[in-house]
Every structure is written in structure tokens, then in C-alpha cells.
Design a protein around this nucleic acid. Structure first.
Lengths: 230, 230
DNA sequence: TCAGTGACTGGTTTAGAAATCCGGTCACGA
DNA sequence: TCGTGACCGGATTTCTAAACCAGTCACTGA
């Protein structure tokens, strides 16, 4: 028998579901709090019992999606530590992002869909995490240290795979997996050292990355309730 | 002593110069034909002696810049045939584009600056040429044939180098050369076969590419006078 | 005679006012 | 105590009048 606060969490989730459906259909600007409340079958005031503003409501939605995505990556990493290798991890991240329209919109800076929700500290946090991941891989010898600006080059190359589709509609016929495989090839050939990596190093790196992902998830959990502006 | 038509060409060039200055400063929408005429110190009607519409005037400007860019690449290719190798050619193209704001704007689809001039047959032609270059390099064994979707992967990776700067302002501190070098590394490691290429193959490929560039330039020359819609 | 010009025209964009909308509050009812 | 929807006023949209500018063409002077 669910207690009072459990009910409240359920309802918060229902409201976020409603917000998600409407956001993807109409975009941030055209979705009103009234719409969300009606879709979630609650009164408008009820929405404000959970979040202080429209911006915080939709930020919570983006953060919830980020948690979901990060948990997926974490599960894959735990099932197979070699997921930590750049070509594997970048591949999984690519698929995890393109399958979540909200994440894709945030990464591509789609202000039509997200308003200015795309910016903000959330994006900075993710960028920082990417940086830390890169440095960690270089330190452990899982990314080539012999080429200058590996981090820059990898960021640039990967970005292109996310953005090409918006510039060249012809590529929309390829499946996400096909693109992800091509991306993995590029990352492996261009940025990873030749030869098989030491399994011990891989296991260790996987453990560290798992820790980082967990702490990201914790940070996200806090943000859901504080609207990303603590 | 310059004849009548030489004068006319000079004046057309002066008008295009004026249009270029104003376009970069204010963008397509805010530049009026009056402005251009005044900047070029001719009457407004005179502009219409050279081009049938505002769109054709600015299209001619973009095409003139494209010719200039293509001639630069052609000269480099003639000076050193190994410029035809993907990592070299992509590097030179990158530099040639980022040093010409109009070309960069067109490639990035900057509609603030170019209005809808960014679209159109010009862009399609350039995309096609890129495709043909890719196929040619694969046929001659200068791009790896063993990885699926090399063309797609290379287009995506290269695109990222053009676009990263607009997403991550931090990278603006790097010089264009540094970025171009990183790009060349990626292309070489990810897409070219290991080992030195056969000089005869290179020379032959260079000759063919030079031919293609020449024919592009010819096409551009026609378009200057026909506004890109023959 | 004709290249060059700028006043002129009417479709389009902009500016400003009026009307509508919607984020956020809160008094009330269950 | 929790949930609601009528209500408020700042923000956005809509409407209309004024300004603007692409493109034309009759005129000028070389």
C-alpha cells in the first residue's frame, strides 16, 4: 500500500510524462502549463506543488532523461568492462543519445524544441564529464598520447556524426546502428593505440568510469528538485 | 588602354567588392541595393545593368569567392601532386574555407548572413564534387576500401571540425592551422591505407582532380552571369 | 546614340497600439 | 492538509498604418 509521498512521486512522474509528450509534439514555447496539467489530469496549481516554474518543470524532464541515459550506459559498462574503450563507449553513447529525442535536441542546441533549456549548467556538466573521460583514457594509454590535441580531434569528429544528418537529409536512410558502427571504426582507427589493451587496465578504467557515472547520476537526482540552479 | 567591356568588368568587380564588404558587415537582409551602389560609387540603376536581381548579385559574389577558393586549391595541387591525398586535400580545403567567411557561412548554413543564398544548386554541386572525389580516391586505393561507409564516415568527421567552433567557443583560441593539422591526422589515420602510396597513382589522381577542379571553375564562370538558375 | 542615373511605384517589412494569452498566485473547498 | 481553477498583470500576438526598398524607366549628358 503506497504511502502519501510515494503517491506524490508517482504524480510527479505522470506530470513529467505529460510534459514529455507535449514537448516533443509542440516544442517548449507552445506548451502551456495548462496543457501539461490537463494531459496529466491534475489541476494547474498541482504542477506548482512540484516545481516552482515552467522552466524547472521542463529542466526536471531533461534531467530525468539524462539519468535514464546514464543508467543505460552504466548497465552496459557493468555487463562488459571493455565498454570503457573509446570506440565502444562513444558508440554506445551515440546510440543512447539518438534514441532519446530530448538528448539529441540538447546536444544539437535545438532551440525550437527546447527554448533556452539547451544551455545551462547541465550542458556544462556533461561537457566537463566528456573532458575528464578523455583525460582518463589518455592517462591509462587507452587513447593515443602521441598525437597532439587528441581530445579536440575526437570531440570534433564525434560531433560530425551527430550533426551530419541535420545537414545532409540523404543520410537519414542509414540506421542508427550503421552510423554508430562507422563512428566506432573512426574512433578506433584514429584515436586508439594499435594492439589489444591490457585487460587489467581496462577493468580498472571501467571501475573508475562507473564511479563517475554514478556520481553524475547523484548530481542529476539533486538537480531534479532544485531546477538546475542550486 | 582598357576598352569598353574591360571597364564594365572592372565595375562589376567593384560592385561585387562593395557587396562583399556590406554583406559581411550587415548580412543579406539588411544590405540594400542602394547601399551597395553608394559604396561602389555608382548609381542604383547601374547595378541592374550587371545583374537582374538582388539575389543574382549576391549569388555572383558567392560564386566569385568559390572560383577564388577553387583556384587556390588548384594551384596547390599543381605545385605538389601529393596534395591530392585525402589528408592533404581535406586539410587545404579546411583552411581555404575557414579563411573565407562567405564560404564558411555557406558550409555552415548561416542564414543570418546569407539569407537563403546558402541553399540552391551551388551547394548541391559542391556536395556532388565531394562525393566524386571520395569515389575516385577509393577506386585508386588512396582511401581504405575495407571499411564500410568510408565516404559517410569521412564526411561526418570532417564536418565536425567545421562546426565544433560554433558549439564550443573555447576552441576559438586554437589557430586554424592547428585545427587543420589535427583534421589531417584524423583523416590519415582513420581513412587512408597504411604505407606510402604509389607515386604514379598519386600523379594520375592529381591530374584527374585538377581536371575536375577546372571544370568546376568553368561551371562557376557560367553561373556568375546566369545567377545559378540557368 | 546609349551607358548611366535616380525619382518613382507597389509589394513587403516594420513599428506601435490593442487584444489575447499564459505563468504564477492564492482563496476556497474537499 | 492537499488540490484546484479563477484571477492578475507582464509578455506575446494580432492588427493596421507608416516606412522601406527591389526593381523600372524616362531622362541626361557625353
Amino acid at each position: 500500500m503506497p504511502d502519501r509521498s510515494q503517491e506524490s512521486v508517482n504524480r510527479a512522474d505522470r506530470i513529467l510524462d505529460a510534459a514529455g509528450v507535449l514537448l516533443l509534439r509542440h516544442g517548449y514555447r507552445k506548451v502551456t502549463i495548462d496543457d501539461v496539467a490537463r494531459q496529466a489530469e491534475v489541476g494547474k496549481g498541482t504542477v506548482y506543488l512540484h516545481w516552482r516554474s515552467k522552466e524547472q518543470l521542463f529542466t526536471a524532464l531533461v534531467v530525468r532523461t539524462s539519468i535514464d541515459l546514464t543508467e543505460e550506459l552504466l548497465a552496459q559498462l557493468r555487463a562488459d568492462p571493455s565498454e570503457v574503450l573509446p570506440h565502444r563507449f562513444v558508440r554506445s553513447s551515440f546510440l543512447a543519445v539518438v534514441r532519446r529525442p530530448l538528448m539529441l535536441a540538447q546536444l544539437m542546441g535545438d532551440s525550437e524544441l527546447l527554448g533556452k533549456l539547451g544551455e545551462g549548467p547541465l550542458r556544462r556538466l556533461k561537457a566537463q564529464s566528456g573532458d575528464r573521460y578523455g583525460r582518463m583514457m589518455i592517462e591509462r594509454g587507452l587513447l593515443r598520447g602521441d598525437i597532439p590535441h587528441v581530445d579536440y580531434a575526437m570531440r570534433a569528429s564525434v560531433l560530425g556524426f551527430y550533426l551530419l544528418e541535420s545537414i545532409d537529409p540523404g543520410t537519414r536512410e542509414m540506421t542508427a546502428e550503421t552510423k554508430a558502427d562507422a563512428l566506432a571504426q573512426v574512433v578506433r582507427n584514429a584515436f586508439e593505440p594499435a594492439g589489444a589493451p591490457d585487460p587489467a587496465v581496462v577493468a580498472d578504467a571501467a571501475a573508475q568510469l562507473a564511479g563517475e557515472l554514478e556520481s553524475m547520476i547523484s548530481t542529476f537526482r539533486v538537480w531534479i528538485y532544485e531546477g538546475g540552479t542550486p
